[in-house]
């Protein structure tokens, strides 16, 4: 029974495990990559974790969309889905702005490697 409980813990929280994985993967990419575009990719992955975090608890297996009808008693909560739509828009906007900045940085510095951009200038 012990083993079963642990299995249930692992499987039951599978959405959270994936969320955690995405967070860590995203952060790792941001920290470890010097290429500015790859950093943005990492940032996107990091943000994606949020979508999963919100949407997955809102879904009830066997639940339907929230339609007022006597035929259905179990609904999924629609609110997280709506929230995440907004979050996705925010994520897209951030990515777009980030990429635009990288284009401009490339024009100005001739490089998108962080070492070269931050490393050359006198920052004082």
């Amino acid at each position: 029974m012990e083993g079963l409980n642990e299995l249930a813990f692992v499987l039951g929280g599978v959405n959270h495990w994936i969320t955690v994985f995405l967070i860590m993967a995203g952060l790792y990419i941001i920290v470890s990559r010097s290429n500015m575009i790859k950093k943005l990719v990492g940032l996107s992955i990091f943000q994606t974790s949020v979508y999963l975090l919100y949407v997955s608890p809102g879904k009830i297996i066997g639940g339907t969309a929230p339609i007022i009808s006597t035929d259905f008693a179990v609904y999924s909560n629609p609110l997280p889905h709506v929230l995440i739509l907004t979050a996705i828009v925010v994520g897209v906007a951030t990515l777009a702005l980030g990429l635009a900045l990288v284009v401009r940085i490339n024009e100005a510095y001739g490089s998108i490697e962080e070492d070269e951009v931050y490393g050359d200038g006198d920052w004082n």
Partner: peptide, 15 residues
């Protein structure tokens, strides 16, 4: 350097 500063802020701020 404003571009680089902005990018830096974008990454940190988004995190």
């Amino acid at each position: 350097r404003a571009l680089a500063a902005s990018y830096q802020y974008l990454i940190m701020g988004t995190i």
